[in-house]
Amino acid sequence: MAAYDTMSKPDTRKQGAAGGWLAGAIRRNGAGYLFLAPWLIGFFCLTLGPALASLYLSFTNFDLLSAPEFIGAQNYVRMVTADPRFIASIRVTLVYVALSVPLKLAFALAVAMVLNRGMRGLPFYRAIFYLPSLLGTSVAIAVLWRQLFAADGLVNSLLAQIGIEGPSWISNPNYSLYTLVVLSVWQFGSPMIIFLAGLRQIPTDMYEAASLDGASPTRQFLRITLPLLSPVIFFNFVIQTIEAFKAFTPAFVISGGSGGPINSTLFYTLYLYQEAFSYFRMGYASALAWVLVVIIAIFTAFSFLTTKYWVHYDD
C-alpha cells in the first residue's frame, strides 16, 4: 500500500525536475499500471503463458512424468481419424447445445413475456424462476436429477399414476442425454432476467399504437417484440451456447464420471477431463482444448456474421 501512495502522487513531485521522458511517462502512467498490476500478472502467468504452453503441448506427447515429446500434428490427426470417443463426444455435445439452448431461450422468453410490465407478484415469480439457475451447477442438483430420472424416481412414479411404465432414463443411452437437456432448460432463469430487462426497454406506446391499428398480438410479437429484442436474444444466444459447450458437472455426476451409458453423456469437457486426468494424456488433452477454442470461435464469428440479417440495432 505504501507503494501505491508514493508512486501515485504525481502532484507532490516537482514537475519536470526529474527531467526526461521516462520520469514523465512514469508520472503519467505509473498509477494506472500499479492498479492494473494484479491483472497483468494474472494475465501473463495464468492466462496467456499457459494458453501458449498448451498450444505447444498440443503438438506433443506428454504424460506429466517425462518431458513432452514433440510429435507434430499427430494428436490432431488421431482425433479425426482414429478416435471414436472424440467423435462421440462431439456428437453428444452438439446435440446437447442444439437442443438445450433454443429450448431454454424459448422458455425464458415466453415466461419473461408473461411476466412483463410490472404485474403484481413479479418479484416473487422472478425469484422462484431464478432459483434453479443459481443452484444450477452444484453437485447436489445433479444428485437430485439422478434420482428424479432413476428407474424408481419421481418422474416414473408420476408416470405410473397415469398408467405409464417409464424407462430407466438415466441408464438408458436413448434417454440419458435428454435428462441433461431438461436440466439445462430448468435453469432458464438467468436468460429470463436478461429478457425482462430487455423487454422493459421497449416503449409501451408502440404496442398501443399497434393495437389501435388493429394489429393482432401475434403480429405485435413478430413486428415489435422480436425485432426490438433481437440484440438481447443474440446476446443470450451467444452466452448460453458458450456455456453449454463448457457444461461439465451434471454429466460427470449423473454418469459417475464415465460419460456413459455407451458414451451417451460424454460431454466434450468430460472427455477432455478423462484424457487429461484419468489417462494422463496431457498433450492430447491440450489438443482437445484448442479444438474447443476453435469450435467456440467459429461459432461466435459465424453468429456475429449472421447478425446483419436478423439483429436490429438502434432502429
Binding site: W39, F43, L46, T47, G49, P50, A51, A53, S54, L57, L64, I242, F245, K246, T269, L272, A276, M282, A285, S286, L288, A289, W290, L292, V293, I296, A297, T300
Partner: peptide, 19 residues
C-alpha cells in the same frame, strides 16, 4: 484483451496451470 479473456474457455489454460 481483458474482454477477450471473457470468451476464452478455461480448458485452454487448464493443463499448463496444473503443471
Amino acid at each position: 484483451l481483458m474482454l477477450g479473456t471473457l470468451m476464452l474457455p478455461y480448458h485452454v489454460t487448464l493443463i499448463p496451470q496444473y503443471v
